[in-house]
Design a protein around this nucleic acid. Structure first.
Lengths: 325, 325
DNA sequence: GAGAAAATGTAGAGCGCTCTATACATGCGG
DNA sequence: CCGCATGTATAGAGCGCTCTACATTTTCTC
């Protein structure tokens, strides 16, 4: 910066103003400085800048798992909203391990970004409290609902209810749900399913499963061996639904004529022509957007925690149809 | 840091040594300092640390598209190797837009990370040169092969040859390739296909397509309308192959009895039981690992550029079988 | 037990910026 | 021509660390 100042024949402070786009600089000087900076290949040092200014103009995003489109779309929403507000985004990932998550959060805390968005972390409420104490933070899709920070959640239970509503309106009454144990979001989906079923006077059939294809296939196999197999299967997510489809196909059952199948998440899979899965869409980018907006409110000074619940929407494709008579 | 030093009754320099895990500190002092730091909730400021030390111990990763598993697995490889070497990783993304890529690279350059891994960027060779001039950098899966920086590439042509080899060994001789124009990697796959075919005295049938499902479906439709439809279709990637499968299914053609189908990339899709696609596997994590290793060599002082070509491998599943007689 | 070597601790000068306070022009009304 | 507001530029004190050089203490060797 000193070199640029010398080259342009001005003070270092002026160069600083130009680099920060201050309006307090005359056009003449601005051009001169910019030309010198360009000629010398000068680029401000972010570390020094943030150290001196005490703020980073950056939002940190910690994602549990970069392979999961849920998180990457979330990050995309954050990036878009951050860009609108002139902020930058830095991403770290825990790579599905809890120790990795701790390291990723530590990196962000040491960086003292202006705020942190946490994507479905595995760690306990205490860690959330600790993070919230140090920096403004928002947790997305975390159902422990730490009170210490803002949260943005999907209304999983409502999504499950939409599925039941759709299937019953098609005449189905033997509807089975393959769940995913205590994986994030799964308990809420299960509860939503069970209460929606009992509300309609139907017996909820629930089978244990997981968020993967294999679990879907196994559960489907057991379900179809029942004396009275279900006419509709609501899988834990799209991936598990593809397992269901694979099994049904292998035993020659037609979808949706013999059995209707519903997934959850509306991932790329569900949209494929070869699968064409009815599923529940979550506005994942919107999660990122709202999270960032909440974060910016916090950065600007809000102190009371806010908790937001976002409504999912049913996407009907060709894996569901009228119940067999 | 001053507070911690005062609280522990030592100098600031000693606290610094402890925070950096220096061996030059007695056990006694170390414990005392750590206890004070913990009690006061002290956490070193990364900006100040990196500014003072002139190094960041961090590798920056710029990914064109976080939604593409190719890039996230690449990043995972980088993260694992970086962790082994005690370095941290910060990710930025261009969100599929060229302007986004520039911003993402700028963020990293301003951060002056110790090195940068660039995941399949869209921008021109000049930009690479500029980046390489400022920081040690490695480009992955970029086929313009900037000479100014190290590169790690997949041997796309060889992958295509593996496919042709596999299909001809099954007796196929009317093999069609659906390409993806000039999208990254596509020209090499096309060339590999064409030369492998002519090497075997077979006429290469190439149809224009893209890296998506729709293109696969369209091309398959045209191919199956030919007077002599191909007995095997080699799609541009897995996604485009699912389009082919969807079309074949819709016209009642059996896979693999009537038509064999091959994808490329070995994504999650290919492994699904409902699709079970023969495809070409790329060791994406290995790309990240090699890239990081090259980067660390550079950081340690190597100056000559290295270019590495990584060999793919065929994964045979049930979408291919003997040619119809 | 003296002297050297090793182990441990400290002072203080930066790292490359930002930001407050202040200086210096210029234009204006009276 | 003075005083005042407005528009620009600058000086210089940090920001929170690291790192070199040096001071002090302990341990070792003969």
């Amino acid at each position: 910066m000193d070199d640029v100042a010398a080259h342009a024949g001005v003070s270092r402070a002026l160069v600083s103003l130009v680099m920060r786009d201050s309006p307090r600089v005359s056009d003449h000087s601005r051009k001169k400085v910019l030309a010198s900076a360009n000629e010398l290949g000068y680029r401000p040092n972010a570390w020094a800048r943030n150290l001196a200014s005490g703020q980073t103009n950056t939002i940190g995003v910690m994602l549990n798992d970069l392979h999961n489109p849920y998180f990457t779309e979330l990050a995309e929403g954050v990036a878009a909203t951050a860009a609108e507000n002139g902020m930058e985004v830095l991403i770290t990932s825990g790579w599905q391990r809890e120790s990795g998550e701790h390291a990723a959060i530590d990196t962000l805390l040491n960086l003292r970004t202006d705020g942190i968005v946490i994507g479905a972390a595995r760690f306990s409420g205490e860690v959330f409290d600790e993070v919230a104490q140090q920096l403004p933070a928002v947790a997305v899709a975390n159902f422990d609902r730490p009170d210490s920070m803002d949260t943005v959640c999907n209304d999983e239970a409502h999504g499950a209810e939409l599925v039941v509503e759709h299937l019953t309106s098609l005449g189905h009454d033997r509807i089975a749900h393959i769940d995913a144990g205590n994986a994030p979001g799964a308990p809420e989906r299960r509860r939503g399913f069970m209460s929606a079923m009992s509300d309609r006077g139907l017996a909820p059939i629930v089978f244990e499963g997981d968020f993967n294809e294999h679990a879907g296939r196994d559960a489907a196999e057991q379900l179809m061996r029942l004396k009275q197999p279900p006419t509709a299967i609501f899988a834990a997510n799209d991936l598990s639904a593809t397992g269901v489809l694979a099994h049904l196909r292998s035993i020659g059952a037609r979808v949706p004529e013999d059995v209707a199948v519903v997934g959850y998440d509306d991932t790329l899979l569900a949209g494929l022509g070869a699968l064409s899965l009815t599923t529940v869409h979550q506005p994942r980018q919107l999660f990122g957007q709202r999270a960032t907006e909440l974060l910016i409110e916090r950065i600007k000074g809000r102190t009371a925690a806010k908790h937001e619940l976002i409504q999912p929407r049913l996407v009907v494709r060709s894996s569901t149809g009228p119940a067999p008579t």
